[in-house]
Amino acid sequence: MNTEPKSRYRKYLEIVTGSLEDKKRYRQYKARVKQLPENYRTAVEALERYLMYFGPGGESISMYEDLADLFEQSVADGTPIRDIFGEDPVEFVEAFLRNYPEGQWISRERNRFTSAVARAAGEDTAREDRTVS
């Protein structure tokens, strides 16, 4: 990893566009997915669409890298797609998402909402407020 200080231009660029390192990692993830057999790639792309609505979006690149790892290993092992997802694909993806709670906007909003109600009720929320981003 590069330990040199970032240039002023690069700092500004990353404020506007997001982390360049994350963008590079995401492009690598997409290249990995492109190498999967068509049926596995179709399943990953469907999972990505679901994650765009209900997951952390692009905030958790490690989640996408883990997804690529899972499918690459499944291809190598000859694991059928149905065995990856089980009978209920939504149950699978919800369980998968629970491993990445820090990036889920819905989790942050639930925490924010709960803290706001507690404050409105006059309860001490000093501990909970620190966990809300």
Rank of each mutant, 00 (worst) to 15 (best):
P56R: 04
D124R: 03
T42V: 07
G86N: 02
R112S: 06
S19W: 01
A120Y: 08
D77N: 11
G122F: 01
R110N: 11
D77M: 09
E72L: 03
V93S: 05
T114C: 11
L36Y: 00
T79N: 02
T79D: 01
L51G: 00
T3N: 13
D77C: 07
I15N: 15
P80N: 07
Y26D: 14
T131H: 07
A31L: 09
K6N: 10
E72F: 00
K6E: 07
R110Y: 09
Y9P: 06
P5W: 03
L36N: 00
I15Y: 11
A116Y: 11
A120M: 09
D77S: 08
E87D: 13
E21W: 02
K24P: 03
G122L: 03
A76K: 13
T131R: 11
R25M: 03
M52K: 15
L20H: 11
N111R: 14
T42F: 08
Y29Q: 02
V16I: 12
N99Y: 08
R25H: 02
A43H: 02
F54H: 13
Y12W: 15
N39H: 14
A31I: 07
E87H: 08
A126F: 05
E109R: 14
D22P: 02
D124K: 02
G103F: 07
L47F: 08
A46C: 07
R110H: 12
Y40V: 00
Q73A: 12
K11E: 13
L97N: 05
N39D: 15
E94A: 10
A43Q: 03
G57A: 04
K23A: 13
G57Y: 02
P37D: 00
E102A: 14
Y29I: 08
Y40D: 04
E102I: 12
E65S: 06
R27L: 13
D22L: 07
Y40R: 00
F85I: 06
S19V: 00
T3S: 12
D83C: 06
E109K: 15
L70D: 01
Q73N: 14
G55I: 00
K11V: 14
R119W: 08
R130K: 13
P80A: 10
N2G: 02
Y100I: 07
Y53L: 14
S74H: 03
K34R: 11
E91F: 06
T79H: 03
A126L: 09
R110W: 06
L20S: 12
D129L: 04
L51V: 04
E65T: 05
